[in-house]
Design a binder for these strands. Structure first.
Length: 356
RNA sequence: GGCUCCAUGGUCAAGCGGUCAAGACACCGCCCUUUCACGGCGGUAACCCGAGUUCGAUUCUCGGUGGAGUCA
């Protein structure tokens, strides 16, 4: 798709090694690169300056934009609500289609660029016959970030380039950066949640600072017996072991979070193993609406229920009320409401949804 | 009230007349990780008090204190 008939490309430029190296690679391939920094906090002058400096080093155009309003409404609002409701959100999943890539497209249109890019370790696959685009796992299997991108639609994918998709090793990225004297070649990987300053907040105190009231409640066993006091639902996620402050001589894990009666159920690891995972708000790549394609009924696929999980064999079934049931061949550990399940066919992302 | 049993890190729990006093769970740190977790590695931390026996007591004896059981 070439709307503008040029080689102009808008790259999400955070100032980190990955996006910087991505810019370099694009430049080398002959793209006219525009570095785009989106400021989710709206006051991140340091972030802007760092990215700008990198852009100058690379000698590329640079744009920054305050997207704090939409980011706050869409991502942070959802993030807090989910936690308050006893779920475990993954803000990156929400941000990508609704803020990050949406912004990239908008900026690309505004500067008449045909393409957009990010430094994700993922690839794009184009099915020529069906004329469909897919996110494909990165060559760098251990860093593969395709999971985070399952909600991107054809309008985005068709214009998207992942320069680092075929880089098989993060060290290779750094090496490239070093060779080209990029100042951030050895900058530490960013981590944690991007909108929370880990120096002064963790996500729990962040949510508290947003004005939410956190109520303590009971830890209970699977039969309902009270085991102790928990410090508020937002502190916990399914499968969690540490930070419970409760001891039984053997590890215990969070097996259930119940927002109705404000309890947290603790149990053994075995209790966390399940075959069937239900998801809602599913999004399937090949349908512009994102709906479940009928031909996927009973389909053998691979799926993972967490970013860091290994894709595991499963079958897909359409369920009532827009739900999808995924039946794994082997039990999976700690399916967590709010996290995403992502479906793969071989190394292509075909869709995903939010776990219930 | 009588009798019996017990008393070790935050919790549970080994053990011995001379030990750097196990281990598990918790906790802390690091690693892993563009979410939250899991996981891996490492770390802090204890013999209830007093008297006695002994070359030496956490270990044996007595008393105290605290807890558990039992009897009328």
């Amino acid at each position: 798709m070439k709307k503008f008939q040029n080689n102009k490309i808008v790259l999400g430029l955070s100032g980190g090694v990955d996006s910087t190296t991505a810019a370099l690679l694009l430049k080398n391939k002959g793209f006219e690169v525009v570095g785009f920094y989106f400021d989710v906090l709206g006051k991140n002058q340091q972030g802007v300056q760092e990215a700008k400096k990198v852009a100058e080093q690379l000698d590329i155009e640079f744009i920054s934009k305050d997207v704090s309003k939409e980011f706050g409404d869409i991502v942070i609002g959802d993030f807090c609500n989910e936690y308050i409701n006893g779920r475990t959100p993954n803000p990156c999943i929400v941000c990508n289609p609704n803020v990050k890539f949406k912004q990239l497209i908008e900026v690309a249109d505004s500067v008449s660029a045909d393409f957009i890019a990010t430094g994700h370790y993922a690839q794009i696959h184009h099915d020529e016959n069906m004329d469909k685009y897919y996110v494909k796992m990165g060559e760098n299997v251990s860093k593969d970030q395709s999971y985070m991108l399952y909600r991107l639609g054809q309008n985005v994918l068709s214009r998207l380039v992942f320069p680092l998709g075929d880089v098989a090793d993060k060290e290779e990225t750094r090496e490239l950066a070093r060779k080209n004297n990029l100042s951030n070649a050895d900058k530490k990987d960013s981590q944690e949640i991007c909108f929370i300053d880990e120096k002064k907040d963790d996500y729990v105190s962040y949510i508290k600072h947003q004005g939410y009231q956190i109520k303590t409640g009971n830890f209970i066993d699977p039969k309902g017996k009270i085991l102790g006091q928990h410090s508020g639902l937002i502190n916990y996620t399914i499968g969690q072991r540490k930070g419970l402050g409760i001891t039984f001589g053997k590890p215990v894990f969070v097996t259930k979070i119940n927002s109705k009666d404000n309890t947290v159920t603790l149990g053994e690891n075995e209790d966390l193993m399940i075959n069937d995972v239900y998801s809602k708000d599913n999004f399937f790549t090949i349908n512009s609406s994102g709906e479940f394609p009928e031909e996927y009924q009973g389909k053998e696929i691979f799926a993972k229920i967490r970013y860091a999980a290994k894709p595991a064999a499963a079958r897909l079934y359409k369920d009532k009320d827009g739900f999808v049931k995924t039946t794994f061949v082997h039990k999976q550990r700690a399916s967590t409401p709010g996290q995403s399940i992502v479906f793969y066919q071989d190394d292509l992302v075909i869709g995903g949804g939010f776990i219930e």
